[in-house]
Design a protein around this nucleic acid. Structure first.
Lengths: 159, 159
DNA sequence: GTACACTATATGCCATGGCAACTAACTTGA
DNA sequence: TCAAGTTAGTTGCCATGGCATATAGTGTAC
């Protein structure tokens, strides 16, 4: 049921299909773990991580990073703010936008969730992404592809 | 903005982030092309392709293949059926389920969309996924990861 | 300084997916 | 054969994202 020869040799479309299937299943599995232990899902975890590493980001910065619409990003920030993990601080140099930052609770949440996230990932793809040279090559290729897509602004939603 | 050293060396979490970003942007870009030229999005294209290769599949088969809920799959099939690309035929060996198949129009749509899809993909990742040994390794790793996740039924939604 | 274009965000409407009933049909065991 | 348990699918409710629009603030040309 899983794969057949024609899938394996389908070239770029086959690779894309494999990539999407991996992403879907990993995302779903991580959602389960994070929801169960911390009451958040993976997309929220990623928002919070980004804000931890880039405090003072604006909504547009998050939208560009994750390639989602600005509207959706604004709503996502609302939800995190309502739960007390994020604050919107006035932007002294542009009153149209706010600077987003983690609260103390948000910070602690990220620290705890990072552990869950890392251990879940290790379990999910630990023995497939080991130290082999194939693994290292895969990491390089995916990283390079990401850089290229971002550089060319591929796949940015309209709003 | 794109990447920094800490992202590149973050191990499994960094790889996961790159993977998700690639998938999001590729999916968005392919949506644009397919919608513009054929009035469908990538998820619909994938459903139709699967039905072309596996006529007589049931809703549950599609749900398992794409790791989406059975409810969502049923609605997705509705939409394709309403547009005249898919038919539900009675399953002679189990009256609870139907056998899904492409109509003539659906078949022609897939044939046309496959061309769009392949050329868009070639343009999007052609020079990153060339014939290099890194690329070949990446294809192998992602394919293996997919097989493992499917074998272990990782990330299947509840309903 | 003021009209005009532009930008950042927020909000509303719609489409889609998850999950939880619910229904119908199948299977099993006595 | 029929009751109890299981399975397949549909549907409703809710959450989230895309896109279009609205609003407010910024920059610029004159």
């Amino acid at each position: 049921m899983a794969t057949n020869l024609s899938d394996e040799t389908a070239g770029l479309p086959g690779f894309f299909a494999d990539l999407v299937r991996c992403e879907t299943r990993l995302y779903n599995a991580l959602n389960d773990r994070l929801r169960e232990r911390h009451g958040i899902v993976t997309s929220q975890f990623e928002f919070l991580c980004y804000l931890r590493d880039h405090p003072g980001s604006r909504v547009a910065d998050l939208a560009a990073e994750f390639a989602v619409g600005v509207g959706a990003t604004s709503k996502g920030a609302d939800r995190l703010e309502r739960r007390g993990w994020v604050v919107r601080q006035p932007n002294p140099s542009d009153r149209r936008s706010s600077l987003l930052a983690l609260t103390h609770d948000g910070s602690e949440l990220v620290d705890a969730a990072k552990k869950t996230f890392a251990s879940a990932l290790a379990e999910l793809l630990g023995d497939t992404l080991d130290g082999s040279s194939d693994s290292a090559a895969a990491v390089r290729v995916i990283s390079k592809l990401r850089s290229k897509l971002e550089r060319n602004q591929v796949g940015m939603p309209t709003g």
